[in-house]
Design a binder for these strands. Structure first.
Lengths: 226, 226
DNA sequence: GTTTAATTTAAACACTTGTTTAATTTTATT
DNA sequence: AATAAAATTAAACAAGTGTTTAAATTAAAC
């Protein structure tokens, strides 16, 4: 009856090489279910039968579309990380004060990880052991690109004399993402501690208080003089 | 020939209740292997056969000593988190300037997580979904205790007029631990980026640069005036 | 409408999983 | 040395794992 939506995703890997992945509605459906379950129960803790049950497809379809469970994970990572790099590169071009750019950078990070709640947990936990090389490679490229953007923004601020010059730029991202991630990984603890009863209250706390805390922290680090 | 070392570990759970766990050499051996493998391959990714092979014991011994794989995880968490609380409470009593205390607090955190590399990964990733209630409860109690210590130190600095008063104390720990944790979780990325070729170089970077970065960040946040 | 290709299915594959059993060996107690 | 308790073992258990197969169904191309 209806033709399947087909979509080609290109993602950069090492040495300016490009790789690609073809997506249709069914594949995307599987990827979304996989993200949800992987993030809830981990990669090993999720079976293909779990995925196919939740996605209401036959078990064989995962192998048919992605080849294997391992390659499903790869596809998932590529699918969910392509556009963050673009978003950061766009930020570089904007006509903003350095501090404004840093604040916006933080907002982008928080928003991205918030939107893709699941995948970042998977990324950090399943890629920790070096075995999944292909996925790891794409993730490493992403991080390198992000670092370049951060570097560029901060150096801009330094040449304008707004930021300190004895800053370890490479450790800025760990502080931004790490703070948010730790908060997110201890969600139920903070829900109880801060009395965040609903999903909405939790998200609002992130959007307001947590983001502000990170911005305040990074600002202090960047402009504070001993 | 030799009598087994026996050791009783008491750990606090909710409402001043105490629970206990008896440990002997063999149990500790199993726990150490379990920590290593859980942190490398995750809880679900590690089989009892993996553990018994590495620990050179029979498969049935895990069930015999701990009852089940799930209870092995619980025991592991209790075993590895008991003394952090004590360490922090001791810090409170020390006669130090507020900023010195904060710096020492950061050192304690970094050291602790560094020493128990494995368990913290397990703690964050396996306890994320709420199913493992018993383990989660002990972990929550630990975090509450830690927060109280941090709160006490910072309020001390505030009454002495050294620290700002508009600080979100509850988000200090996420920044400290989160920064370190993110660095640790992306170990291979930073090894390449910072050219840390040996285990020693990596640990030195943590001990010097990373710890300093966190201390610098928290100091700036605490004393910086807008 | 016929043929070819793509999709979907249930069943089977060999393998691994956590746990239990019952027998055996080692250690401790009397 | 005899007895009781604890530790250790190999084997078996049922259930779950990822993947493959070959047949059935649906869609596309001619």
């Amino acid at each position: 009856m209806f033709k399947l939506n087909k979509c080609l995703i290109l993602y950069p890997i090492r040495n300016n090489t490009m790789s690609q992945i073809e997506l249709n509605d069914k594949k995307i459906q599987i990827l979304n279910v996989a993200e949800k379950l992987f993030s809830e129960k981990g990669f090993e803790g999720t079976s293909i039968r779990d995925i196919s049950k939740e996605a209401k497809i036959n078990i064989a379809m995962v192998s048919y579309y992605f080849g294997s469970k391992e390659r499903l994970l790869e596809a998932l990572i590529f699918y969910k990380t392509v556009d963050l790099k673009l978003q950061l590169e766009n930020l570089l071009q904007e006509n903003l004060q350095p501090l404004e750019k840093v604040n916006k950078l933080i907002e982008i990070y928080v928003n991205r990880i918030c939107l893709n709640k699941g995948i970042y947990r998977v990324l950090h936990f399943e890629l920790y052991n070096k075995k999944r090389e292909k996925s790891l490679e794409a993730f490493t490229e992403l991080k390198k690109g992000n670092l370049k953007s951060v570097e560029s923004i901060i150096k801009q601020g330094q040449t304008q004399g707004v930021f300190r010059k004895d800053i370890n730029i490479q450790l800025i991202t760990p502080t931004i993402i790490g703070t948010f991630f730790h908060f997110h990984m201890n969600r139920s603890f903070f829900e109880e501690l801060l009395d965040l009863k609903t999903e909405e209250m939790f998200n609002n706390y992130i959007k307001n208080d947590l983001t502000k805390h990170i911005q305040q922290t990074i600002k202090a680090l960047l402009v504070y003089e001993n």
